[in-house]
Amino acid sequence: MNSTLISKVKDSFINKFNADPLMIFSPGRINIIGEHTDYNDGFVFPAAVDKGIVAAFHKSDDKVSTAYAIDMNESIVFELDKLKPSSEGSWENYVLGVVAEMQNKNKVVGNFNIAFSGDIPAGSGMSSSAALENSVVFGLNELFNLGLSKTEMILISQKAEHNYVGVNCGIMDQYASMFGIENNALLLDCRTVEATPFEINFKDHELILINTNVKHSLSDSAYNDRRSACENIASLLDIKALRDATEADLLTIKDQVTPENYQKALYVVQENNRAVKASQAMLDGDLETLGALIYGSHEGLSKQYKVSCDELDFLVEQAKLNAHILGARMMGGGFGGCTINLISKNAVETFKTTVSKAYKAKFNKDCSIYAVKLSNGTHVIK
């Protein structure tokens, strides 16, 4: 956790609201494998990281509540009985949405002030949105003693994203951010919303993220489009979700769907299997198998699910040229953001230099590279 960030948020809050706040840290997340499987009731393998959102809260004596986004130097003032999505559609909908969904659960939230800032790199696919939602629901639950369980909190965060942000997301991001365990990844069954922690020992390897620093703009609509394709195929098969399908099942309806949608469904079935195999590889300490599964995941995301882009594909191809990298893939919704790379520790510095040069030469743009540590989930900063 970033002590400079904590100080910045606390000082900003005190300067603006003249009160000593309750402080919450809510982490971003990575996902080792299992992409676009969460809304198909499948398996994912995320972990909370040491970058996230720090939020400061205090009850307000005013008749209104105020939210202050420190990094943008923007404030909104709102009345709790007149909540509706902001047409601007930016950060405020994550805050307003959570409050609205808490009220829908008959939880009485009083007026409050919040200020927040984060160190999750923008557009990195590390789910700053879930971190922000979780920080709000967790902070208000503490502030007003509402007695919500962590599971209830993440469902509120998810609903906020559906109803106020307009992204029909699965539960993975909110779960990983809320329930993360230091040095563990979580094999999460998105149907039961139960996870098995796996202590991660990458031995002489580590994870690094490479941010393409691009975000191709079709991601939200493309996401919702793929989700509906998956749901249509599940209903053709008369199953609840693609998690229940086998490759053999898909063959039975192949002539009833477009080739593109068949490949999308096939990808989901295969990716679900990869996530389960990856957890076994972790147990066995078999990093080579894990790496091969990670490469397989990218291949499917790029060629079958078609949510990659030139920049992501280029970074994965660069990884394949390096014998010290066991696996690499795009991470997150797609069309930009980061690749995640499982790399030998002693090869990191050289690879950083070569991949940065190659990326710049190809796209005339810089990539950004970060190491991440696996951290605990959303909690009060003591």
Rank of each mutant, 00 (worst) to 15 (best):
L290I: 13
M331Q: 11
E299Q: 13
G300P: 00
D313T: 08
C338V: 10
S344A: 15
N322E: 15
V257R: 02
A281L: 09
I294L: 10
V316L: 11
E299A: 10
N346L: 14
D284W: 07
Y305I: 04
A245R: 02
D286T: 12
H324A: 15
I239H: 07
V257P: 00
M331I: 06
S302A: 13
A292N: 15
N261C: 07
L326A: 10
A328T: 08
T258Y: 01
Q270L: 08
T252I: 06
G337S: 11
A278H: 08
L287C: 09
Q280S: 12
T258R: 04
D310E: 15
L266F: 01
D244I: 01
A245N: 02
K345Q: 15
G334T: 11
Q318M: 14
Y305Q: 03
G332V: 06
G285D: 04
L242I: 02
S235N: 13
I343L: 08
I253N: 00
I340D: 01
R274T: 03
S308N: 12
E271R: 05
Y267A: 02
A248F: 11
G291R: 06
N273W: 00
K306G: 00
Y267P: 00
K303Q: 14
G336H: 05
K240T: 14
A292K: 14
Q304S: 13
V268I: 15
L237Y: 01
H298T: 11
